[in-house]
Design a protein around this nucleic acid. Structure first.
Lengths: 258, 258
DNA sequence: CGGGGGTTTGAGTCCGTTCAAAATACGTGG
DNA sequence: CCACGTATTTTGAACGGACTCAAACCCCCG
């Protein structure tokens, strides 16, 4: 039912050729290449496997090209001036990482970490460059993808600016359910978190303890239940309200009480 | 002495032709166009003037192309789910706004507001499209610019995640001094804030009152002084420390006291 | 001189943090 | 399969930063 499951299924079926196969199926950049350029890409790309916790590239390193995510999930993490880690975004299958520093001509500004066992394809810088020069359509795809990432980043800025941790956690669950969730026949969504509480905290801009308390608060109010890394969402609408309302909460409540 | 002042001077000298002239001079996208394409751009662009407070485009509107900033300063502002405004970034002269929704094929996701009297050039969507298709170099420029904006957005995420308002204000001053500041012979930097306290608060993800208190705290500690919208920075190093240290502060202090 | 927008200050409250301890999960070797 | 040591997660209590509400203050302009 969920798009993510369909994606995973398709990738597994194609084994080592997952890269070409998956990228054709989804909103990914390379899909627009014609046969000739696609075969050039195919001979240049090098498939790689990473285990949960492995580092794909590190903050400060020079950029050696881009990586496409075929399977798994990555996190991009930066450090603030005082050394604390912040996860700036998650990268699901179908997306490319490393574009930012490739196009910006900068060293890597974040560390990419595999949150679960993952399969990537590395494409070296000169191949990407030559493909870009020959395919304006590819450039447009990358521009569109960059626009999307910028929007997501700005949405994150807006969320962290004013929403409490509890609402930010709810918003994160809403996002994750599209990528990792599966719904049973009752409309009850369940998903397995690919992050430790610590990483969840880095992603939400909070501390472990605060995240734990926010989880407890959500389950006390029957919005979602947490058992270890397993999450179940009884009613999606209740979860969505959690994100929208925030300050409306007590007014909604008092309306329900009267 | 400051780059911003040089830029302003150059633009004013060219009057109505500021667009072409300015864009050639700086790190702007259009600079890479050859003579033919540049003249196409020049005949399609329409110069526009906005007064402080004017809206260039609004959240939700369809995208009609991009705008280049020749003079002045713009703010891009979004609203969070509960309706509160957040300024996600400032746009100085030399930059283009509206690319994000143009490339993403989405309606505008933010409202663009002139913070001071500003001059822009509007370039319609089909012109930008045709230029992009004919000039891979232009596409690369836009990709580079998108990468830069994404990095800046991610930096903002990291800052708001853990730094206190006082440090975020200091970081903002460090950025603004490059665009708006002028240094006297003593190395003492002064600048005029183009924002109300309210807008400053929206930019920092805080409330007016908190920003006022943070200003007071900074001037009490002789980091910077605020008189209305005029800011003077006595020693830039002290201001930079303010951003770096944050949690180191009390240890620095105790070292100084002993 | 008296508005009115914008700014500053104060007092009280709430949310998130910090520090510390208990509880739970987990992998490893016996 | 169980016991044990370690890492992660959860809870509690106290503190602190930022928010809210409310009032005073400016400063510019009519």
């Amino acid at each position: 039912m969920s798009p993510a499951l369909v994606l995973d299924g398709a990738c597994q079926r194609h084994g080592q050729n997952a890269c070409r196969a998956c990228h054709g199926l989804h909103h990914d950049e390379w899909g627009v290449l014609d046969e000739r350029l696609r075969s050039r890409l195919n001979s240049a790309r090098v498939p790689q496997r990473y285990r949960a916790g492995d580092v794909v590239f590190s903050e400060g390193e020079p950029c050696q090209g881009v990586h496409c995510v075929d399977r798994g999930l990555l996190a991009l993490r930066k450090r603030d001036p005082s050394g604390r880690a912040v996860i700036v975004r998650l990268v699901p299958p179908g997306r490319t990482i490393g574009q930012r520093s490739f196009f910006g001509g900068e060293p890597r500004m974040a560390t990419a970490i595999a949150l679960v066992d993952s399969e990537l394809c590395h494409v070296d810088a000169s191949t990407v460059s030559s493909l870009l020069d020959e395919s304006p359509a590819l450039a447009r795809r990358f521009l569109a993808q960059g626009a999307r990432e910028l929007r997501e980043a700005e949405d994150a800025i807006v969320r962290t600016a004013h929403l409490p941790v509890r609402s930010r956690l709810a918003a994160l669950l809403v996002e994750l359910k599209d990528v990792l969730g599966s719904a049973d026949e009752e409309g009850c969504i369940s998903l397995h978190l690919p992050l430790t509480r610590e990483q969840l905290a880095e992603l939400l801009g909070a501390r472990r303890e605060t995240v734990a308390r926010a989880m407890r608060a959500l389950s006390d109010d029957d919005v979602a239940s947490f058992q270890g890394r397993a999450v179940t969402i009884g009613d999606l609408d209740v979860l969505l309200d959690e994100v929208e309302s925030s300050s409306d909460r007590e007014s909604t409540r008092s309306a329900a009480w009267s």
